[in-house]
Simulated assay, not measured.
Amino acid sequence: MHTHHQLIAEKSVIDTIVLSLPFILIITIYLTAVFISNKKYQRWPFYRIIFFIVGILCTAAALIGPIAESAHTNFQAHMVMHLLLGMLGPLLISLSAPMTLVLRNLSIKHARMLSKLLKSAYVQFICHPITAAILNIGGLWVLYTTDLFSMMHSSILVYTVVHLHIILAGYVFTISMIYIDPTPHRTSFYLRACILVIAMAGHNILSKWIYANPPAGVGKADAELGGMMMYYAGDAIDLVIVVILCYQFFKGNSYWTKKAHSLS
C-alpha cells in the first residue's frame, strides 16, 4: 500500500506536470511559428530559438518545482524566483524577438491590426522608459516595503497578481530599454541610458534596504543573503542590458556615419 508520503510525492509530481503544460504549449507554438515562417522568409536565427526556450524555462522554474515551493518559506529561494521571473526570463524572451515572429506569421490584415495596436497611445505610455521603470522598480519597492509581501503568501489571488505583474513589468521594462522587436514609439539613447541608470540604482538601494530591513516574517540572516543575491545577480543581468543598449547605439552611429560619408 502507498504510504502518506508516497501519495503526497505522487500528487506533487502530477501537479508539476499539469502546471508545466502551458509552458510546453508556449514553446510548441513558438517552434511551430518558426517552422511556418522559415517556409516564407529568411531562416529564423537559431540563437533566438534558444533564447526563447531558456527564457520560458526560467519563467517555469520560478513558478513550479522546488524553487517555487521553497520560496514560500525561504527568502533566498524567493529571491532566485524574483531574478528568474522578473529579470532573466524577460531579458531572454525579449532577445528572442517574439513580436517579430508573430508579425511574420500573421496575414497582412491582422498584421496591420497588430501594428495599429502597437502604435496606440496606450502602448506608447506603458512602454515609455519612465513608465516601465516605475512599474518595474516601483512595484518591487511596494512589494518589499509594505504588507503586500506577507499578503502574497496568504492569498492565491494576490500571489498570482503579484507574479503576473513581476514578469510583465520586467518584460516591458526590458523592451523599453533595448529594441529587438519593431518599436513604433522609440525614445533617444540618452533618455533610456539615464532611466536605466536610475532604475539600477533603485534596484540596488532596495536590495540594501532588504538587507537592513527584512520583510515581515523573514529572518535577518535570510534577508541579508537574499539582499546580496538581489544586488549582485541583479547587477549582472542589468549589465547585459547595458552592453546591448550601448552596442545598438554604437552600431547605429557607425551605420549612419558610413552612410553620411558615402553621400558626401
Rank of each mutant, 00 (worst) to 15 (best):
H4Q: 13
L7E: 14
I8Q: 13
K11N: 11
S12K: 15
D15Q: 05
T16N: 13
I17Q: 09
L21K: 04
L21C: 08
P22A: 11
F23I: 08
Y30F: 15
T32L: 13
N38I: 06
K40S: 09
Y41D: 09
Y41C: 00
W44P: 07
P45D: 05
I50L: 13
I50E: 00
F51P: 00
V54C: 08
V54K: 03
I56A: 05
L57V: 14
A60T: 02
A61T: 15
A61S: 15
G65P: 09
G65H: 12
E69S: 14
T73Q: 11
M81E: 15
L83P: 05
G89H: 09
P98C: 11
P98K: 09
M99A: 12
L101H: 12
N105S: 04
L106M: 08
A111F: 08
R112S: 13
S115W: 04
S115V: 06
V123H: 01
I126D: 03
I126A: 12
P129W: 08
L135I: 00
G138F: 08
L140M: 15
W141A: 03
Y144C: 01
T145I: 02
T146L: 07
L148S: 03
F149I: 01
S150H: 06
S150K: 13
H153M: 10
I156P: 04
L157E: 14
V158E: 05
Y159Q: 08
V162W: 02
V162R: 06
L164E: 06
H165L: 14
I167Q: 01
L168R: 01
L168A: 15
V172T: 12
V172A: 09
V172D: 02
F173I: 07
Y179L: 05
Y179F: 10
I180M: 14
D181S: 01
T187Q: 15
S188I: 09
I195C: 09
A199K: 05
M200I: 13
M200P: 00
A201E: 10
S207I: 04
W209S: 05
A212P: 01
P214T: 05
A216F: 03
M228F: 08
Y232W: 15
G234A: 07
D235E: 10
I237M: 12
V242Y: 10
I244Y: 06
Q248E: 10
Q248G: 04
F250T: 12
N253H: 03
Y255S: 07
T257Y: 09
